[in-house]
Simulated scan of single mutants.
Amino acid sequence: MSRVREFDTDEVVQKAMEVFWRKGYEATSIQDLAEATGLGRGSLYAAFGSKHGLYEHALQRYVQLTTDATRVSLMQRVPVRQVVRDLLLGRIDDALKEPGRPGCLLVMAITERVPHDEVTHRIVRDAIAALQDSFFGTLHLARSMGELPPETDIPAVSNFLVTMIQGLRVMSAVCRDKAMLAQVVDTALLVIPQ
């Protein structure tokens, strides 16, 4: 008879996500994960198969949390430029509020794992697509309500804003100057036609 799991999988994945976010995949040991989650190595391997299996769950959790937060932010009933500005400034605030955290787990996955890890590449690709879809929907609605000119290239603007978010995450990891980053956001908003 097999033993019943005596832990909350969501809580374990959340704690593991924090470790991977703080240290990155390569620098995180299974011992780090065991200490953070309070589980033994054997329990972690039994539940997730490997360090990479736990990483996949942690990255998917991060993507879900950030995707949900982005969708909520983009659904605000204010002019589209304000919605986008608030979202981008919010990403800066999130990045700067924890000095020990090196930025965005998704960006870390892109630079650390995507070049040689197909599963991580798929998770990241799907996350980027979801972000593009969120911007596309918001911009399309704004255009239908007359906030944007009919000729607005919504896919191009959406792709630019997705790239902008990732760039802000990278810059906020190395530049802690909120005023400078806010100026970059204001410059980026010029791409949204009036």
Results as ranks from 00 to 15, higher is better:
S2L: 09
T9G: 02
T9M: 07
V12F: 04
V12C: 07
K15G: 02
K15L: 13
A16E: 00
M17V: 03
R22G: 14
Y25G: 09
Y25Q: 11
S29R: 06
I30E: 09
Q31C: 03
D32S: 05
A34K: 00
G38M: 00
L39A: 12
G42N: 14
S43I: 07
Y45I: 15
G49M: 13
K51E: 00
G53Q: 10
Y55Q: 10
E56K: 09
E56N: 13
A58W: 01
Y62M: 11
Y62S: 06
V63C: 14
V63F: 03
L65I: 15
T67K: 00
A69W: 00
R77G: 08
V80N: 09
Q82C: 13
Q82G: 12
V83E: 03
R85T: 08
R85S: 13
L87P: 05
L87N: 09
L89R: 11
G90N: 09
R91L: 15
D94W: 05
E98P: 01
E98A: 11
G100A: 07
V107N: 08
V107S: 09
M108S: 14
M108A: 12
A109V: 04
R113D: 14
V114T: 11
V114E: 10
H116P: 06
H121Y: 03
I123F: 03
A127V: 01
A127I: 01
A127M: 01
A127G: 08
I128E: 08
A130Y: 00
L131K: 01
L139I: 01
H140C: 09
L141N: 08
A142P: 02
S144V: 08
S144Q: 12
G146E: 03
E147I: 05
E147D: 11
P150Y: 00
T152Q: 03
T152A: 10
T152C: 05
L161N: 02
V162F: 03
M164L: 14
M171N: 10
M171H: 10
S172G: 07
S172V: 12
A173I: 12
C175P: 00
C175G: 08
M180G: 15
A182P: 00
A182M: 03
Q183D: 15
D186S: 14
D186E: 15
T187C: 10
T187L: 15
T187E: 14
L189V: 11
V191D: 10
Q194V: 06
